[in-house]
Design a protein around this nucleic acid. Structure first.
Length: 239
DNA sequence: AATATTTGACCATA
DNA sequence: TATGGTCAAATATT
């Protein structure tokens, strides 16, 4: 059955993707030739596309979930839904802030009114999901007691290559459409970025919270996602 | 024109 | 079945 080998391929490709992302991060942090950075980005992009294809095949492997189609006009094309499970992980970090803007380029993909809550919840994903395969998402809602404050829950990590939106003011991209990476890492990064960068560059930093924000780690365990990371690290040690 | 947001439908989970 | 997370067509914005 091709399904097994396909999912194995998924794992390998995910590894390749992480490695490529690391490479891009390194190239950027050392201020390497933009052409090289672009090349790394292209590699990431290709791996992502391949990953999507393979995941499609895995998902559609056995036509198990065939929805009972009916003659009604195409209310929706026969898209393969590979939506994530509801409990796809506790929020990695929760932040209360007076602004919804955390500097990253987010793209809103949904809004939902929540039971017993006056204000709707907004759903965002990283604006670089397609380009960099970044899986970071966040949910933002106004706080009940003080609607001028926003409660933001973060899911998944940004890629080291994910630029901050406000960095675009300093370094505009050549193709104009998108902001690009801040030239140096001198300025403060959001806490989640610091955490993530620490995974990639061994010297582990202490968590630094910005002044006006209250942040607290989620109570649940967060060790589940790190297995791939561990594999990669192990691999690097062997080389 | 391309690109981002709005919005109701769709779907998985409890 | 109710709830909430995501998709994607329609719409707005650039």
């Amino acid at each position: 059955m091709p399904g097994g080998s396909a999912s194995a391929a998924c794992g390998v490709m995910a590894e390749a993707q992480e490695a490529a992302v690391r490479l891009l991060g390194l190239l950027q942090s050392t201020g390497a030739d933009p052409a090289k950075q672009q090349l790394a980005q292209q590699i990431i992009c290709c791996i992502n596309r391949a990953l999507d294809k393979v995941r499609d095949d895995v998902g559609a492997g056995d036509g198990s979930k065939g929805k009972p189609e009916q003659g009604l006009a195409a209310a929706r094309p026969p898209t393969e839904y590979r939506r994530r499970a509801r409990g796809c992980g506790e929020a990695r970090e929760r932040v209360v802030s007076s602004t919804m803007d955390d500097g990253y380029a987010w793209r809103k993909y949904g809004e939902k009114s929540i039971q017993h809550q006056r204000h709707p919840r907004f759903y965002f994903r990283c604006g670089y999901r397609n380009e960099l395969g970044c899986r970071a998402r966040k949910q933002v809602e106004r706080m009940e007691d003080d609607p001028s404050l926003f409660h933001t829950a973060y899911f998944g990590d940004h890629t080291p290559a994910c630029p901050r939106a406000d960095a675009a003011v300093l370094t505009s991209s050549h193709d104009g459409s998108r902001p690009c990476l801040p030239a140096e890492a001198g300025e403060e990064l959001p806490a989640n970025m610091v955490e993530f960068a620490a995974q990639y560059w061994p010297p582990k930093d202490q968590l630094v919270n910005s002044s006006s924000e209250i942040s607290f780690a989620s109570p649940g365990g967060m060790e589940s996602e790190s297995s791939l990371e561990a594999n990669l690290e192990e691999l690097l040690h062997l080389l």
